[in-house]
Design a protein around this nucleic acid. Sequence first.
DNA 1: GTACGGCCCTGTTAGC
DNA 2: TGCTAACAGGGCCGTA
Length: 268
Amino acid sequence: MPELPEVETVRRQLEPRLPGRTVVEAGSHPSAKFTPATEVTDATFASMGRRGKFLLLSTTDDRELVVHLGMTGQLRFGGPDPQLDDPYLRAWWRLDDRTTLEFADVRRFGRLRVVPAGDYRTIPTLAVAGPEPWDPELTGRRFHAAVKASKRAIKTQLLSQRPVAGVGNIYADEALWAAEINPKVTRLGEDRAARLLDEVRAALERGLDGGGTTLRDYRNVEGGTGENQHRLAAYGRAGLPCLRCGTVLTSEVIDARTTTWCPACQRR
DNA sequence: GTACGGCCCTGTTAGC
DNA sequence: TGCTAACAGGGCCGTA
């Protein structure tokens, strides 16, 4: 599922192709999640941005097409005509260079929204998202303060996007494993919080370096898969030996997400 | 303000 | 072999 590294990989692939292109026609699936696609008809794309797991495709008329890939969303370029026979095509934008940008999404967890540039009041998670992982103002101390403000389990906090933006289930489990922190802990000292922030950054960097994590559905704009799935130490490895100490990894549902950790080196 | 449960979705897999 | 149920989970919303 697309988290920050996957979304950033997509953004980087849109960057050389979409800015400057004008939408000559657009269409969508009837669900309200996708109908905003047509609001950018006649608009010209400008810069390609990203905030957490949201793609922010700005237009020259000071708006933004906000794209969340959800679980199975995929942006891709096609020929002059959209592939309307694809049952999973949810939105499409015919461009002025005789190509089409398509948004396919099997499970319809993705969503589109068009907003005035920078105005995210109608997108709750984006409106309250914490700093980007590599924001220079995000220090260990600031991250600790953000975590300390809530009494919820650290895993839940990471998924909330508030202490830091862009972390999903995979990279949360990987970062907690690397930092040797139990996902259920509700209190972290400043040193441990700083280490966790370091490991969040490292996990995301590994993901970016590998072009994302493809467990099943994720594809980049070129249709390629990521490689990071081969480097995972915790996520999806329940029942297998810990790569650090050999103890069998355990898993449990936390915040409605399967969470995997080492009961020995990630003690509470 | 915060916490929590339920819902949206559909392909895949496990179990009978 | 074929059917059914469980499972995967990011974001949002209603309720407490």
